[in-house]
Simulated scan of single mutants.
Amino acid sequence: MTQLDPTTPVERPTQRSQAKADRRAALLDAAAGLFAERGFNGVSIEDLGAAAGVSGPAVYRHFASKQAVLEALLVGVSERLLAGGQEVSENAPGAESALLALIGFHIDFALGEPDTIRVQDRDLDALPDAPRRQVRRLQRRYVEVWMRVLGALHPGLADDELRVRVQGTFGLLNSTPHTARIGGAPVAAAQVRPVLERMAWAALTSD
């Protein structure tokens, strides 16, 4: 592996490139909120631009189409979940701590990005075939990260049961945007988190 020279200056983003990246991130954030509220088909390019503080045509400087925005949103979150899951599981000292870390990692996602979960649930089929298959592949690999950790903790479980336990736990945690509400108002994350942690651990490890 090539070693980097510590004396070599690291190339930093220019002000212009950083501004472009920030605008793209703002558009994706706006898209998550609007798609979650109205559905993919209920949002126009002009709506996306207005929510991010730009004109509709300016959106095309960052994305070729509204479908490209949805693709960036859903492929991007699937990539982040896989990379994050791999990182937390590999850095844990043992199977039990790795599973706890994965649970915490996914709860962070569920509590922090409820709009993205809603869009994933409702609008994945609005993607063209290729990016939809890519999302599914990334999701399967994320499930497999959990299965490997859970299998190390419970080596007697068959793969089919490991998969059911993991996917059932995702169903539990990903329902948070819909269920963690009282009288229509969101419940504070500090109240929800310990409940989710206990329930996820029980779902994964019960005899």
Rank of each mutant, 00 (worst) to 15 (best):
L124H: 03
V149G: 05
G183N: 13
T179N: 05
V166D: 06
Q191Y: 04
V119C: 05
A180Y: 06
H154M: 12
H178V: 02
D123S: 10
G151R: 07
T116G: 04
R137S: 09
A180E: 03
P155C: 09
R181L: 11
G151E: 07
N174E: 09
V192R: 03
I117Q: 05
A188T: 10
V145K: 04
L127M: 05
V135R: 08
L150T: 11
P131E: 09
D123Q: 07
H154T: 03
A189K: 01
L153H: 09
G183P: 10
Q167K: 12
A190K: 08
P186M: 12
R198T: 09
N174H: 14
V192L: 07
R163E: 15
W146N: 12
A185R: 15
L196W: 04
A158E: 13
P128S: 11
H154E: 12
H178R: 14
R133V: 10
I117A: 03
D159T: 06
H154I: 01
L153P: 02
P194E: 07
A130I: 06
V192P: 03
G151P: 13
V119P: 06
A158N: 02
V166F: 02
P155D: 13
H178W: 13
L162G: 12
V195F: 07
A130P: 00
Q134H: 14
R181P: 05
A152Q: 15
W146T: 07
P177K: 13
G168M: 04
L153K: 08
R163N: 03
R165L: 04
N174R: 11
A189E: 13
W146D: 01
G184I: 05
V192F: 02
D160Y: 00
L138D: 07
A126T: 00
A189L: 00
I117N: 05
L150Q: 08
A130V: 14
Q167A: 04
T176H: 04
V192G: 05
A190Y: 00
V166N: 09
I182V: 14
A189S: 12
E144K: 13
G151D: 09
R137V: 10
H178D: 14
L153A: 10
R122H: 07
R198A: 15
I117G: 03
A180P: 03
L138H: 07
P128Y: 03
D160T: 14
W146H: 15
T169S: 12
Q134S: 09
L127D: 11
A158P: 15
R133N: 08
A189Q: 06
D160E: 12
F170H: 12
G184P: 04
A158V: 11
E197G: 01
V192Y: 02
A190T: 13
I182M: 11
T179Q: 10
I182C: 06
L173E: 07
L150H: 02
D129C: 00
V135F: 05
Q139D: 11
L124K: 02
D123A: 09
R141W: 01
V164P: 00
G156C: 07
R118H: 04
A126K: 13
D123E: 05
V192Q: 06
L150M: 06
L173S: 04
D125N: 03
G168K: 06
D160A: 15
P177C: 12
D160V: 14
G151I: 03
G171T: 06
